[in-house]
């Protein structure tokens, strides 16, 4: 058993937890959190795939993919939260 396998399994576990929550919960903030967990899971399996246990080096291209993914995700999350907050506000009006 290698450490890559551990992170593959952990990444897939994150995917499973996030998918389960997305399927069973309607609360906006929780759904957004679940989507973020989903993205972390994807990043983890991607990096674990790019990791070469023989040399201990991780391929820079998947690293760049994950970095891009993190920035894209914070942008979309901010937009989603702004929408959710605006929705909450308009129900009071």
């Amino acid at each position: 058993m290698t450490s890559d396998l551990v992170y593959h399994v952990a990444g897939a576990g994150l995917l499973a937890i996030a998918l389960w929550r997305l399927a069973t919960c309607r609360d906006t903030l929780r759904r957004i959190t679940a989507l973020n967990v989903l993205a972390i899971g994807i990043a983890m399996v991607l990096l674990a795939s790019g990791h070469d246990p023989a040399t201990g080096v991780t391929n820079p291209v998947p690293q760049a993919f994950v970095l891009t993914g993190i920035v894209v995700l914070v942008a979309v999350t901010a937009a989603l939260l702004a929408l959710a907050e605006r929705l909450e506000g308009s129900s009071d009006e």
Partner: peptide, 26 residues
């Protein structure tokens, strides 16, 4: 706004599925 929120969360879920596929392709 409600439709936009559902649209964005569905769109994000779709993008993440796509990204997962791209990760597996890699």
């Amino acid at each position: 706004l409600r439709a936009a929120f559902d649209y964005l969360s569905a769109g994000l879920a779709g993008s993440l599925l796509l990204l997962l596929g791209v990760a597996l392709a890699y």
